[in-house]
Design a protein around this nucleic acid. Structure first.
Lengths: 193, 193
DNA sequence: CCAAAGGTAGACCGACCTGTCTACACACAA
DNA sequence: TTGTGTGTAGACAGGTCGGTCTACCTTTGG
């Protein structure tokens, strides 16, 4: 297997489970069974490796999420699919995303508070990409295709609930199942209102 | 001023702005103008200092939040007050909480992934305390005083939205104002449904 | 007056960090 | 065959970390 890819995969696993600052280069080398020189042949610094991990995670997460909400034709349908997907991730039923440990981007951003840092920028970019995915999906429903402002508002609502659900699960180690109640979702996603 | 309190205050400021791992003991000593021996007279380790910071922050945040939602007699009223308060915090109009840098407990939990770590436990405890504050306040409204299950569900919804709002603001550096629309809040907090 | 408590200043220890470098092994194409 | 690229193994440098310790100073109460 391609060494570079192998290193990124190994590093992503470790960074996601333990946080960036808690995982040293030497630990990654051992986990990946790779020499230090090899790592520094492919990445000029730990920071560049972290960026590569963020990009891989971004791509993986978006691919996974897209699959979970494909063919959602109504806002209610999308909401149900979204929260069911997040809940399954939290309950470790989404092997593509690894053992649940919260949102990698929120965790990482917490370790890089300066907003102009390249790593912080990648974290923000991921969030924008996910929001845009939700906006696009909502805009394609028959109920919202002529109401772009409403689509944005509902996407923001979904996004906020999703983030909250993930963060709560991360910190308190509990899963919110109330967000899967159909009547609540109908109320949240009421397009007429 | 009491040295111990002074150290905790200084450390909390620094930890909140930069994260725990990014702030060394020596940096705190300089900021607080205190000798290393003095710090280690009051705290056996950095970890104990971090715990003291978490406790101070917990107490400060809960006091602030209680003040913001006092006298809310309806769920809608509470929701409006809550999101207005969080928005004002994000916009740096809540000096008691310092320059906004997300939720200190979520940020800190991200740096301590093992859920049995004392620091992680304090983070979780804070979230439970806040949730209980919301449940109590909702339970005291005339509309919900006989519906404890509904009060819990609505409190969880508010909590999830609050967490999401804070995390999004932290990562993307934007404030969600859609959560202050009265018609949306009425829909969210509809007790009949 | 003097002992005790608690402060300052900072040297120092061992551990660990990122990143560089040397020395060597192997595959493969010119 | 020989040079080049890529790999391994790991010593090493320079710095930072948390935490200990010595030496000295200041306040205060008996």
């Amino acid at each position: 297997m391609d060494k570079r890819t192998h290193i990124i995969n190994t590093a992503l696993d470790a960074f996601y489970q333990k946080g960036i600052h808690s995982v040293g280069i030497n630990e990654i080398l051992k986990l990946a069974n790779v020499a230090k020189k090899t790592l520094y042949n492919h990445f000029v610094s730990k920071e560049e490796l972290v960026c590569a991990c963020l990009e891989l995670r971004d791509q993986r997460f978006n691919t996974w999420l897209s699959k979970q909400i494909v063919n959602c034709t109504t806002p209610q349908h999308l909401a149900r699919a979204l929260f069911a997907a997040i809940a399954s991730w939290i309950d470790n039923k989404a092997p593509e995303l690894g053992d649940f440990n919260g949102c990698f981007f929120i965790n990482t951003a917490a370790e890089y508070p300066q907003s102009d840092h390249p790593i912080a920028k990648l974290c923000a970019a991921h969030k924008h990409a996910v929001l845009n995915l939700l906006i696009d999906t909502l805009s394609q429903t028959t109920q919202l295709q002529n109401q772009p402002a409403k689509a944005i508002e509902l996407a923001q609502l979904l996004m906020t609930l999703k983030e909250g659900m993930i963060c709560q699960a991360r910190v308190t180690h509990t899963t919110n199942h109330f967000l899967q109640s159909p009547e609540l979702l109908c109320r949240l996603m009421d397009v007429q209102a």
